[in-house]
Amino acid sequence: MEFPEELKYTEEHEWVLVEDDVATIGISDFAQDALGDVVFVELPEVGTVLDAGKTFGVVESVKAVSDIYAPISGEVIEINEELPDTPELINTSPYEDGWMVKIRMSNPAEAEDLMDAEAYQEFIEGEE
């Protein structure tokens, strides 16, 4: 299982890539593996304002469903249009092709509270 160093992670198993004031969000390799084959993804519309810690979407496999929580506050500026038709991208490429939304952060400082790769790996070892 991979956990790229350049990403930040949450206890709800989302990852965040921060570039200037834009954050790209997806779910981790651990999360996709626990869910199994993803069959459906529900994403917010562009323009939606997300509050950190609140749910903004849903990922479903055949027998499980998981809410996605916003790791960071901000406005959705782009969503991954590929996902509704090819949700399996979340399984095959969780950190690249399987990204979910990009948001313009309203409070970039929130990113500093997130875990780095090492801390996240420790966290999931504790969960298992």
């Binding site: 459906f40 479903e60 496999s61 055949v62 027998k63 499980a64 469903v65």
Partner: peptide, 9 residues
């Protein structure tokens, strides 16, 4: 589409 249902959700 069982994820709509009570035994999962």
């Amino acid at each position: 589409l069982a994820t709509r249902e009570q035994h999962i959700r």
